[in-house]
């Protein structure tokens, strides 16, 4: 388990460094295709692992349910624009069920919510951003015991998410790149990112403990996704 996790982590980092280097070193023109291909490969890695692994029917249903909860999380907040607890749900899932489940739930939540809101060129980026959010929550689980550390984590991800989402605009126009454009794009998303970050902090501060408790109890009761009890019904 530890070894697997290390390999996973390494692969992601290596791919990310490759991405950065391919941008700096090679005078390629098709950055958008390239970046989407790399993002797709990372996601495929996780989905393929999920296909190969022995997974119980119960676990699949639970993952689907959590992804659906994350996807509809903005429904009760329809009256409050720019407030959405999707990221909070994904971080909590990563904290309780681990890195891989976190990634799956994040990526699937992005696809599912876009099936209702409309797919677009942003779908792969959203999958990647929410996926890595869940992934990192799972990987950093030992460090994220205290609520205030979780709050910092959520705050940072509020901005990281927006920055990853801005990349598709930057990347599709690399030929035109200038720092003014770069700063312009990132400055225009600042207030949105800030509200995302603050929302994450508020939700984590108020609800993280309860949600972790609910999910943790459930995980142990049915021995799901790394919980200890019961091993029946592997698919």
């Amino acid at each position: 388990m530890e070894k697997n996790r290390a390999i996973l982590f390494l692969t992601v980092i290596v791919l990310f460094i490759l991405l950065l280097f391919s941008f700096i070193l090679f005078p390629l023109q098709h950055y958008l295709v390239l970046s989407v291909a790399i993002i797709g490969m990372i996601s495929l890695l996780f989905f393929k692992r999920f296909e190969r692994k022995k997974v119980k029917a119960r676990e699949i249903v639970i993952l689907a349910m959590l992804a659906a909860i994350a996807a509809i999380a903005r429904v009760p907040f329809a009256g409050l624009p720019s407030i959405q607890p999707t990221s909070f749900v994904i971080i909590t899932v990563g904290l309780v069920f681990g890195a891989e489940s976190g990634f799956l739930v994040g990526a699937v939540a992005a696809i599912v919510s876009n099936i209702f809101l409309g797919q677009g060129p942003w779908t792969p980026w959203q999958m990647f951003a929410w996926g890595t959010m869940g992934l990192s929550a799972g990987l950093l689980r030992p460090l994220l015991g205290k609520i205030w550390i979780q709050c910092i984590f959520g705050f940072v991800w509020g901005f990281l998410f927006g920055w990853i989402m801005n990349l598709w605009i930057i990347v599709s126009n690399m030929e035109n790149f200038s720092w003014e454009v770069f700063i312009g794009v990132y400055a225009s998303s600042f207030s949105h990112d800030l509200s995302h970050a603050i929302c994450n902090v508020i939700f984590i501060a108020l609800f993280s403990k309860r949600w972790v408790k609910i999910l943790d109890r459930f995980k142990r009761k049915y021995g799901l996704l790394g919980g200890s009890v019961g091993d029946e019904g592997s698919v």
Partner: peptide, 9 residues
């Protein structure tokens, strides 16, 4: 997994 998640929405 995605199909089922869509059904839950």
């Amino acid at each position: 997994l995605i199909m089922m998640s869509i059904r839950f929405v």
